[in-house]
Every structure is written in structure tokens, then in C-alpha cells.
Simulated assay, not measured.
Amino acid sequence: MKKNSRIYVAGHRGLAGSAILRRLESLGYTDLVTRTSSELDLRNPLAVEEFFHKEGIEFVFLAAAKVGGIVANNEYPADFIRDNLMIQTNVIDSAYRNGVKKLLFLGSTCIYPKMAPQPLKEEYLLTGELEPTNEPYAVAKIAGIKMCQSYNRQYGIDYISVMPTNLYGPNDNFDLEKSHVLPALIRKFHDAKMNNEPTVTVWGTGTPRREFLYVDDLADACVFLMNNYSGNEIVNIGVGDDVTIKELAETVKATVGFEGELVFDTTKPDGTPRKLVDVTRLSNLGWKASMSLTDGVKEAYSWFLENYEKEAIRK
């Protein structure tokens, strides 16, 4: 990408997309194109085709997606598979039809089998059954990967797919019903502290292990890969280290300053026992994460405090 290349960030208001936009701006890219969902419904193929036809887009970061945690995935499986299939199909196909030079598709590490060996290597894709709680979302993301790979093979284009691990940071979703575990914990501990509650309840046993990537590190990796990687193989993006949910909860508790007790609700699902990605491929390309979990949680909590009064957080 050149500094004046016409670059479209799809999903620029979301967690990943907003970070990619910030990173591009900080690096001096000047021709950045964005559309809100009300301005452009990516589920509408005619609208997406018209957008690409008119705008002359050269590069695409496809970060637009319907996302959520265990609760949302369990309750709205049809929404997750339908909306994500429609969004990525429309953007990938219209990008190809209108001469986009390169596209980066953001997948998710939930594409890997539930019981795959750890750490998760890229070649483990489609080698076993998926985690049932987010299978519709994972199937949609796998379809996006295969679509990029198939278009590359048939049309000789350069669309790459990256698999970020659990993300957190500015512009995260802190809704307790729809958010992922880390922002949910920040919200829970903060509310408990403000209300002088004696305990905070965490779903599950606390034993599953998870890896957490600060979203600005993800953005840096995405821009790096767009400029330095071409190929049909997917690329994991992570830190290469993980913690238990209990350890995560204790980190958030200390950051927020909650002085009560932790309680684990073992009647709630744990999800995948462990989800650590192998980042050897990314490391060999010359990139590694820089934000520690402790510092990242502090940054995420600071952003939360600055934006807590906004309606999007207080839902």
C-alpha cells in the first residue's frame, strides 16, 4: 500500500476495524474510506456492488462482522451465520469484480476444532468438530477463508486471511449479554465496585485457558501483513501465551480495584478448554505483539471509564 492508496476499512466502528483505522491514520495513509452500517448495509449485495463500482477502492480490510460471546452465539445462531455469510460474500465478490488489488479478511480462532492440539496451528483447520456454542459463526468464518482461497486460485488475485485470537481494547462491547469475557469482566467488576457488592460471579469453573491480544497490536499486524504477506495460507495473529479465566479475572479485579470475592458459577458453560494459537508463521514473517496483558487491561479499563456514560456501554 502506498500512503495515497484508496483503502476501505469495512467495520470501522467495531473493535478491530476502529483499531485498523487508527493505525492507518497514524502511519500517514491519507485516502481512507469508511461507511457506517446505516450508510452502507453490507448484507445488501446491490448496495455493496454499487459502492465498490463508484469508489475505486484499491485495498480492503474486511473487519465487518456480527460478533458476540457465548450467550449471544447460543441465542442468535441464525443471525450469526446469515449476517456473516452475507457480509463477507458481498464484500469479497464485489471487491474482485471491481478490481481491488488486495483484501485482508479477518477470521477468528474459533474456526479451529474444539479438541485440536495446543497451540493451534493453521493446518488444524477442518480436522475435527467445532465448539458447539459458536459453530454457526465459525462455519461462516471458514466459508470466508475458503472463498478468499478459491478466488485466489481461480482468478489469480491476492486476498489473505488472518485469524486473530481473543481481542480487547478501545471500542469494545461491554454489554453483559453480548460481550466477550474480558470486557464483560471489566464491566462486572466496575459495577460491583460502584455498588459496593460483596462478590462478583464469573461463568464456568475458571480453569479454561485463553489468549488475549490488545486490539492495537492486531491492527499493527494487519497492516504489516497487508504490506508484507501474500499467499493462500491463513495466518494466526496472537501473543503466543495464555492465562486461565481465573487468572484473567484476578488481573481485572486488581486493575479495577474491586475488593470483594470471586465466585465461579460452575453451572455455566466453560466453552473450549484451551485456545492458544501458534504464532510461528507470523513470527517468521517478522512481527510480534508488544502489549502485555496487565498493561492492556489498564488501557482497556481507562477507555471504559472515559466512555462509560455513553449509551453503547450502558445498555
Rank of each mutant, 00 (worst) to 15 (best):
N284T: 10
L32V: 10
E197I: 02
L176D: 09
I234V: 15
V277T: 15
M291G: 02
F304P: 13
V239W: 00
D216P: 13
S38N: 05
K146Q: 15
I7N: 06
N134M: 01
R209P: 05
T267Y: 06
N74C: 02
W303A: 08
L106K: 05
N73L: 01
Q118S: 10
N232V: 08
I7M: 13
S290I: 08
A140L: 09
L42I: 15
G11L: 04
C110H: 15
D295C: 01
V91N: 05
V223R: 06
K101M: 06
Y159K: 05
W203D: 04
L62P: 08
N73V: 06
D191F: 04
L104W: 08
R153D: 10
G99Y: 10
D31T: 04
I157D: 10
E58H: 06
I237D: 04
D41E: 15
T266W: 07
D41S: 08
T207S: 15
R187S: 12
K101F: 09
F105N: 04
L27I: 14
E49Q: 06
L218P: 02
L106E: 11
D31K: 10
Y214S: 03
P117R: 04
E233D: 12
G28K: 13
D83R: 00
E299A: 13
R6F: 02
N73W: 05
N227G: 07
A10T: 02
D191H: 10
I245V: 13
R43K: 13
A192W: 08
A312Y: 08
P132S: 10
N4C: 01
D217L: 03
A192S: 15
L185F: 09
E122I: 01
Y112L: 13
G17F: 07
A140W: 04
G56T: 04
N232R: 02
A300M: 02
Q149Y: 13
R6V: 03
L104A: 11
E261G: 11
V252M: 00
N173L: 02
P208R: 06
P273Y: 12
K178A: 12
R187Q: 12
R187I: 03
I7G: 01
N228P: 03
G99T: 01
N195F: 15
A184F: 11
